[in-house]
């Protein structure tokens, strides 16, 4: 059981080659850290792994199936800017309902208060909004979670709280977790294994 990317390449449409020949594997229940220079394609890789973006060549398999198979996506992505990941006109209730019926116990663990459901994204702080993005991502069918600079915009206490909850949930449910960050001490704390993106792509001739 693993999230497995084989020989991935991505070329920016009309632009340069971002990466080639990239292999990555996250086992169920494993926590893998990913780091690398800004602009090297970490967030693009995250979107490919989550099935939001097709790679130029290469394959992504989750537990043996293509990542974009019909049905709820087994790979979920939580990004750096939660305000860009939700519809600004929807209430938080609709934002979550789009994905799944939230388990009240999970809401409580994520520190989501009942009165926040009726609010719209602009009426919540970034940290509160990111808790909803985590709730939405941690549906019953989620097998792998990608946290792409999930706490880069937050203070250290919020960061520690969010990762403490995420660690407990992925351990219990044997979810594979890929943490993308520039913060090496953070990755050291969280991860079983840390991988670096291959050298900056601008070195690769287009």
């Amino acid at each position: 059981m693993s999230l497995r990317a084989t020989d991935l390449a991505y070329r920016v449409p009309g632009g340069h080659q971002l990466f080639t020949g990239l292999d990555l594997r996250v086992e169920a229940g494993q926590v893998v850290g990913l780091t690398g220079e800004s602009g090297c394609g970490k967030s693009t890789l995250a979107r490919i792994l989550a099935g939001h973006l097709p790679p130029t060549t290469g394959t992504v398999l989750t537990d043996g199936y293509p990542v974009n198979a019909p049905g709820p996506r087994p790979v979920q992505l939580v990004q750096q800017h939660p305000e860009k990941a939700v519809n600004p006109r929807w209430t938080m209730r609709s934002v979550v309902a789009e994905a799944h019926d939230p388990d009240p116990a999970l809401c409580e663990r994520l520190g989501i208060r009942a009165e926040w459901y009726g609010r719209r994204p602009a009426e919540l702080s970034g940290g509160e909004l990111q808790r909803f993005c985590l709730l939405r991502a941690l549906g019953p069918r989620t097998r792998y979670l990608i946290a792409d600079e999930m706490t880069a915009m937050f203070d250290t206490l919020t960061q520690a709280e969010l990762f403490a909850v995420v660690r407990d949930i992925v351990t219990e449910r044997s979810i594979g977790l890929l943490v993308i960050s520039h913060d090496i001490p953070l990755l050291d704390r969280l991860c079983d294994e840390i991988v670096a993106m291959p050298e900056q792509a601008s070195a690769v001739s287009p």
């Binding site: 203070d155 206490l157 001490p185 953070l186 704390r189």
Partner: peptide, 16 residues
């Protein structure tokens, strides 16, 4: 805030 840094107490300092 200082002690919640990953290189210090991180999640050991926050209530679960």
């Amino acid at each position: 805030l200082w002690r919640a840094l990953p290189r210090h107490d991180f999640w050991e300092g926050v209530a679960p």
